[in-house]
Design a protein around this nucleic acid. Structure first.
Lengths: 125, 125
DNA sequence: GCATTCTGCTAACTAGAGCAAGCACAATGG
DNA sequence: CCATTGTGCTTGCTCTAGTTAGCAGAATGC
């Protein structure tokens, strides 16, 4: 029976939206990511629009292409509970900026400012 | 295409054997476990004999019925790496931005733009 | 002896994941 | 002005996960 309507967190539309965000923020076209993940581009399109429900295998390949953990996608897809520490060690943006040697101090400060303006100054988590 | 022949660790026969062991050590019949997991008994039979390849949803329900963690079954099924070891040290600013759930995709794109303008390079892969 | 009621398995079907082919629309640029 | 190349999307198909119905054998009891 498989229970199509699982918990509210993970409707397939949510997964699709997340995947599309990730793809776009990585500057990848449908075809580019589909090739990276070894799947067809129409299918990826359908996944992102919430029309199809990708298997774990597909999610795994997408995760690789997007450089995110498979667990993250599994959670979004509702086949894994958040269980152990959501996104855990994924270095925070703040830390990554602070540690980046390619940035000058001024650039670092600027970048942090922009980031703070987006997510709010405080460490709200 | 989904790649039928994955790594040697997780042939579906191995998964089936494991499931059958677990079921028997729990003193459950095919029908009992299939009912617990909410799937049909012939299908469970086929899974255990390695004839069918269960989806993550099914594995999840079986895990519940057998009182083992879903992760364990996922690993056996080859859709999760052994305790995941987070194959990436991921400390690049790009990755951190891409992975940050607190950003909207627009913000993510903007932030990436700013960062790219600082460090130049666009084709890091 | 023959009904039950277990056990696991086979057969035949349905639904939907995932595919290749191809369309419509923009943006380039010869 | 049309050819090319990029974007995402639609159509129609194949293949297989997962179904229901039902079979064969072993263990009970009448």
């Amino acid at each position: 029976m498989v229970d199509v309507s699982r918990n509210p967190l993970n409707d397939l539309a949510g997964l699709g939206d997340y995947l599309r965000e990730q793809r776009q923020s990585h500057r990848l076209s449908l075809r580019q990511l589909s090739e990276l993940a070894g799947i067809s581009n129409p299918y990826l399109s359908q996944i992102e629009r919430g029309l199809k429900r990708p298997s774990a295998e597909i999610l795994q390949q997408l995760a690789k292409g997007l450089e995110v953990s498979a667990e993250t996608l599994y959670v979004k897809a509702g086949i894994l509970d958040e269980h152990h520490a959501d996104e855990k060690p994924t270095t925070s943006v703040r830390d990554a900026i602070a540690a980046d040697p390619k940035l000058t101090d001024r650039q670092r400060a600027t970048l942090l400012d922009v980031y703070e303006s987006f997510v709010g100054t405080e460490t709200e988590r």
